[in-house]
Write a protein that binds this DNA or RNA. Structure first.
Lengths: 336, 336
DNA sequence: ACTTGGCACTCGGGAACACAGAGTGCCAAG
DNA sequence: CTTGGCACTCTGTGTTCCCGAGTGCCAAGT
């Protein structure tokens, strides 16, 4: 159906279009990439590619431009992910290593990725659900108020002020704290509800009232944050580009929900997900592609990150950058 | 120098230009605002205003446009801050009241402000320096590692993992925690260094090693975060506007440092600060104005917030919104 | 002394038009 | 199947032209 040379032509079209941002014609193409055939032959191939829907012309008598389908084929079969240079790798490492806490890791990551790809980077905070409890702290503030602090193994900290129904003594709080920690330490967050369910019975009568209040707040915290936090950076990078609907993209970026869906569900493996133009689930973002990957410490994927840019982007380079950053972030998180 | 009517003309020019985004001519102006004089008279006044530098014409034979100086006069003397409608006030209250923690308050605030003004909103996190210590928590993670958690009276939580030089026992940690809290509770963050200085001597010999490490991390935390965190929202609102250099603005927004300077130093009172076009300290932002205000609980200003939009903005409305939001946020923070 | 109507002038922006250049499709020959 | 040739079709650009909004100035009116 598509012989070797036609694929080569498609690859050349994509590469040229990506680098020049102008429809590419048969002549220029035959020259720049030494295909060893004449422009006329290229024209014939192009005609076929167009018929099959891989490329298109903006108007008669203009060069060809890849369609979403064309990019898809390019990404799947015609390109190889381009690894970062040694210098870039080292830059990433040192830049990320300087982070002092989770917030800082995420902030640095998103900026790094934006700068590296010259596009808009998006990073999701490590999911609470998949991480485990490292410590629960109860801090008495007044005699009827305590602060509940939940620390996860990814370094994330959640806090809530709890108004208590009764006055509690410090000793009581200390006891509760000990019980909670004994019970929850190392527990996966999504298993907290079950784990906590039978806690009541193991408590002395006089603590139950207070414990109930605290536990309900704790559970609430987990539910509330089910909608995960997402940050982005590098919006300035798409300012100069008219091929994307700037307003729509900016709106999408500020909608956490939309962003979540764009990054996609946790993919099976640690593979890269690429969504090209109309493939993505938000109508305002045609003309835009997303390259995303999961990241995590060890096996379990904690969250996702990726970049968003014009459909006409340099996929090999972008994919390389996303993959590399995802790996490094995983390492950093695992190490802390 | 400028009689009553000339000022009225200037006001009319500003108002018309703001609402139409087109240079305003003498005829249209005389009609729309019933000034009771003929276009010719208006023309004379305009000539004077132009000579004085309050308005200008983009090219000969076009209408007039206010200059930065013109807007300045308008803001200072010709306009009144427009209070929000009752419905808007209630909307703010309920929206902000739903916040569960500091992060949430800030996030909600910045979105609210963006939506209310249809411009880019910027909110600075409450300053660490001006707040006080509510609690210091030390959480043993492993035998040579503890997590330091600092909770302030504004609900902000800072955390750091500390690697210790020696193995410590839980009892030691508990003791240190008690000492730290006794010593620092209610202490203003900017006074922490002094307060902590003589702590060494009051500690038993065997704790000093560990204490030194922890304290140095604690102090580091305070210094590190001297560059405060800032968030923004509503970037999509300036997408449709060609009068501002989109790229420059987006770049500025992602530079914390620049943003800090834009919001300005803590102003004397709780008054609004307005920076018009070239008045602001960053050259990429001519064509852009900033309306900012401090907010805080009670008297002391904790941080600042504001909006950023094209010089051609509706100042009375924007100022009203910023002032109102600043007040409500202050109340919320004071209450929690 | 200020206001007003009249009038000539200026200039930007849109419509109409022509034109060069890049690129195509097709065909006939290799 | 490939290649060179050729006629054709567009877009983008530059030119010209003209309309209209708006101005500045002046002389007359109050």
């Amino acid at each position: 159906m598509l012989d070797e040379r036609k694929l080569a032509v498609l690859r050349a079209v994509v590469e040229d279009y990506v680098s020049t941002n102008e429809p590419v014609g048969s002549k220029a193409l035959a020259e720049r990439h030494n295909l060893g055939v004449s422009p006329a032959t290229v024209r014939n191939d192009m005609a076929v590619l167009e018929e099959q829907g891989y490329i298109t012309q903006p108007h008669t008598s203009a060069g060809r431009v890849p369609t979403d389908k064309g990019y898809r084929l390019f990404v799947d079969r015609l390109s190889q992910i381009k690894p970062l240079s040694g210098a870039e790798r080292r830059a990433i490492e040192t830049f990320l290593a300087g982070a002092v806490d989770l917030d800082d890791v995420v902030t640095r990551t998103v900026r790094l990725l934006a700068q590296l790809t010259r596009q808009v980077a998006v990073v999701q905070y490590p999911s609470l659900i998949r991480s485990t409890v490292r410590h629960v702290e109860l801090v008495p503030l007044t005699e009827r108020r305590i602060m509940l602090v939940l620390i996860t193994n990814t370094g994330r900290v959640e806090q809530r002020v709890v108004d208590l129904p009764d006055v509690v003594e410090d000793a009581q709080v200390a006891h509760l704290r000990a019980v909670l920690n004994a019970c929850l330490d190392g527990c996966r967050l999504n298993r907290v509800p079950e784990t906590v369910a039978d806690l009541h019975e193991r408590l002395p009568e006089e603590d139950r009232h207070v414990a109930t209040t605290i536990l309900s707040v704790l559970l609430e915290t987990l539910v509330d944050r089910h909608d995960e936090k997402i940050v982005f950076a590098g919006a300035a990078n798409l300012a100069g580009d008219f091929s994307v609907g700037l307003r729509e993209v900016l709106e999408a970026l500020e909608e956490q929900v939309v962003l979540m869906r764009l990054l996609g569900e946790a993919s099976d493996s640690a593979a890269l997900t690429v969504r090209i133009g109309s493939e993505n689930p938000y109508s305002g973002l045609h003309g835009t592609s997303i390259v995303a990957a999961g990241y995590g410490s060890g096996d379990n994927e904690l969250a996702r990150l990726g970049v968003l840019g014009p459909t006409r982007m340099d996929y090999p380079v972008t994919m390389g950058a996303v993959r590399a950053v995802a790996r490094y972030v995983g390492q950093i998180l695992a190490g802390s």
